[in-house]
Design a protein around this nucleic acid. Sequence first.
RNA 1: GAUCUCGUAGCUCAGCUGGUAGAGCACUUGACUUUUAAUCAAGGUGUCCUGGGUUCGAAUCCCAGCGGGAUCACCA
Length: 507
Amino acid sequence: MHLSEQEIIRREKLEKLLALGIDPFPPEAYEVTVHAAHIKEFFQEDAEGKPVNFQEVSLAGRLMSSRVMGKASFAELQDSTGRIQLYISRDDIAPGDDKTLYNEVFKKLLDLGDFIGVKGHVFRTQMGEITVHVTEFKLLGKALRPLPVVKRDEEGHTFDAFTDPEQRYRMRYVDLVVNPEVKGTFLKRTNMVASIRRFLNERGGLEVDTPVLQAIPGGAAARPFITHHNALDVPFYLRIANELYLKRLIVGGFDWVYEFSRNFRNEGMDRTHNPEFTILEFYVAYKDYLWMMQTTEALLEQAAMDTCGTTDVQVGETIINFKAPYRRISIYDAIKEHAGIDVSAMDEAELREVCKKMHIEIDGSMGKGKLIDKIFGEKAEHKFIQPTFITDYPVEMSPLTKKHRSKPGLVERFELMINGKEVANAYTELNDPIDQRERFEEQVTLMERGDDEAMFIDHDFLRALEYGMPPTSGIGIGIDRLAMLLCNQYSIQDVLFFPQMRPEKFD
RNA sequence: GAUCUCGUAGCUCAGCUGGUAGAGCACUUGACUUUUAAUCAAGGUGUCCUGGGUUCGAAUCCCAGCGGGAUCACCA
């Protein structure tokens, strides 16, 4: 094992601590009575400037900086809420003749990054900084590797930032320690999810769990990961969606079920795609996609409000307004609006002609539905910046969706576009088992034509529908994509703690 | 998967047309009892991503590989 100079020095310090009878990794709990942010927010002084509270505090965290000035030192402690300054004077922590605790342990054997616990009282320095005057400290956990030292001056300028994306993603633990805004992003994401969960629970939604290992990967058009079950000696797929399982629960008599579903798709990775990602799906009996549009607007408005404190959310250079209601436009009108052509009456040959003229890449496996989707994707999708429901898709690209109540050839489906990206996809669910069987059979034809994303026939799902499913509307909302918007992050990797990367090699 | 680009100290980076490896911070030693990007003095950082090649000589030029990023393709 190759050790750098600094790592060797820290290991030597470990030995010296042990020689002094100090356990660098003590087992017992340390009493924490207060956190840094709380002190900074609520510290008070009387008229003479004498502190009135926090005169007996005990807190713990990482030592993040240390400025030794002879017999006194200033240091910074970083706990889960932020940083607070420490003032440590030699004669306070080592009142007797033996000054080892200060001269050796504090000044020499502690390193930046070490976990320590401190007890003391809070005061304000001459420079105005709220500070803990330490009377007692204890090493709680030694850091054997040096953290990147990121410094910030008064104007907020950052020096020597820890910025290498590879290192930040691979060693998120370090990223979180030294880049406080990263923690902020993830807290925001968690708040967003909590807000959505509250919204659903308040309306009678029931949170459920359904299988991740599936014998038939259904509910979406995507290439799955394949794994193998040893005892049964059969292949299993990691789920690409949970849709068909949630609908089985609607068959079973629940009115409203939801699941934050970790899905896995064996496809490319880029700034908007990770092999595993989270979709919130929910299904509500006796509703249709029109109801679902209203519910989606309300859900997103609340999520934006709870997460950002406003419905006008800054995303990159633009402001996205999450306040309901959102614009609605059919996919044909959307294409008309942005490509200037009416594809609503075209057959497959005509659509191919249009794609050719627009220099849109196509191949022989694509049917009418996919061609229309292509044209929309190339010419219109990225133009919808403000939240917009794109409605009424062609039946060929929606095998699980009920046919439109009044428009032949279309289905009752919408996708929600925000900032030029699909964030949600919803339908009035197909509950006619005979129609569903025919749609699955069409998928088999597509598969034979070479479409490797066409759906398998799920016979158990058909059997469930044959027992009867109430009219139902369902939706999938891309939680990572939504988090990217509400947290104003350009890349999905910045809203996932551990984005997928090529495995690291250690030698 | 394709193209472009990057890889030098713990971190951020410089290193020109090839000539003994550099800075700031961090680190080590010392001074300093209200500092705050603390300051002052002194000190050493290293598989220049890996492996080949060209050359008297390669961090530098060439080839291959590994890893990252960006763009594109597939997709949410």
